Amino acid sequence: MLVFIAPYPDCHNEQDGMIQRIASIDSNFETENRVYLDISFRRFFKKSIIIKNNLTVYQLNFFFSFLIILSVVAKARLLYVHSVYNALKVLPFFYFKKVILDMHGVVPEEMLFEGGNIAAYVYNCVEKIAVEKSYSIISVTKIMQEHFKNKYGRNCTADLVIPIITQGVNAQDLCCKNQEDSPLVIYAGGIQKWQNVPKMLEAVKCNLSVRYRFLTGKPDEMLRLAENYGIDNLEVKSVSPALVEKHYLESDYGFLLRDDILLNRVACPTKGIEYLANGVVPIVLSKDVGDFSRHGYQFIRYEDFILSKLPSLSELNKMKNRNYSVIQSIQNEMKEGITSLKQMVQV
């Protein structure tokens, strides 16, 4: 029995980036008998068990349902733990179970970035034990894999790199957008600090030669932020994930304003993947986001964008096609990683 330590993806959580990663991995094991343990320290005081064909999903409180957790884990031939956040909930089992740990990100550094010094210390301890005891570490980029090699001296042949790739479009479609209007700049995401929304709004004020469209789950808050910058005509929408691609296909550029810090250098941002796959050229603060630079992706620097220094139509189309080639390379890496993961799970 294959046991995943993670929430199970459903219509209520599908917009979350971590859940999208979980769903991507799960899609490769749909024929397996598998169990999801969604464990919480603060919720699920009343346990929930959902059984559907070869899938069982438990929602359990760590303290109230520990014996159930212990029973399920004891029967598992392998544990697949999504993120160090979930590793904390099953840390003792790393010592006597075969565990695959999907890192998702660099959790201790994320905690430090958000000002949680105590949480950063706790998760750094958890991460150290989990990395040392895991049979295999799954990273989303080679840069992330190198980070864990350097931090812990880990050099295990079972470790894999599996990027997150969303459905793209055919390369010939990338240059078929409406060229009669001015270029369209899109942003699809939240308003968290690390997204640098204020810098986006500064760009909106500076570059009036293009159109803008912001897609976010919190449109009212985004509009309030825009008003603070004196912007009263910003197009802001909230759409389902299924409709986001339609908006990408109408867009030419997209904000991907990540600071040059470790969190961003090791990441494989879903937004960046979606941009490149759908002919949206990223506007960046730092070019070093995940493995994109290693593959030679094309981008627009933020400082050039606010000065309206944009490529010609023919140059833009070349950039889009180059980025589609980058996505194909990353997709090949993902396929190789998934093949190795499936073989590992069957052993």
Rank of each mutant, 00 (worst) to 15 (best):
I162E: 00
E146I: 08
S182F: 06
F214A: 09
K98D: 09
V244N: 03
V140K: 04
F66S: 14
L67V: 14
A74W: 14
G189E: 11
L2Y: 05
Y135E: 09
G168F: 03
V161F: 10
Y123P: 01
E221P: 02
Y8V: 10
L201Y: 02
N323R: 02
L276Y: 07
A171Q: 07
R77G: 07
P7L: 09
M319A: 02
G168C: 03
S240M: 13
V280W: 08
R265N: 07
G230M: 13
L341K: 00
Y58A: 12
E202G: 06
M200P: 07
F299Y: 15
E235V: 14
H295R: 06
I231L: 12
I283Y: 04
S209H: 05
T157M: 13
E303Y: 06
V73K: 05
E32K: 06
L201W: 02
K142P: 01
N323P: 04
M111I: 00
L55C: 08
N155I: 03
G168M: 04
L112F: 07
K47N: 12
C11V: 14
G105E: 10
K75P: 06
L313W: 09
E250V: 07
K205R: 14
F93A: 04
I51R: 15
G337Q: 03
I283E: 03
H82W: 08
K133E: 09
M200C: 12
Q59G: 09
F113C: 02
V239W: 09
E245N: 11
I306H: 08
M1W: 01
E146A: 13
N124K: 11
H104Q: 08
Y36K: 05
S240H: 15
I49T: 14
K133A: 03
F4I: 10
S182W: 06
V131G: 01
I50H: 13
S329A: 06
Q20E: 09
L285W: 11
G105Y: 01
L112C: 07
L112V: 01
S71C: 10
V73C: 08
V280N: 05
A158P: 00
M344C: 00
K75E: 13
V131Q: 02
I338P: 00
D173W: 04
P92F: 14
G105N: 10
S329G: 00
G116D: 14
N155A: 10
L91V: 10
Y152K: 07
D102K: 01
S83T: 14
S40V: 09
V284F: 12
A267W: 06
P183G: 04
I138N: 06
K52D: 15
C176L: 11
F255I: 04
H295K: 11
M1I: 04
L88Y: 09
L78F: 02
I191H: 11
H295P: 00
D181M: 05
N86E: 11
S240Q: 14
S136A: 15
I330K: 01
Q346G: 01
K318I: 08
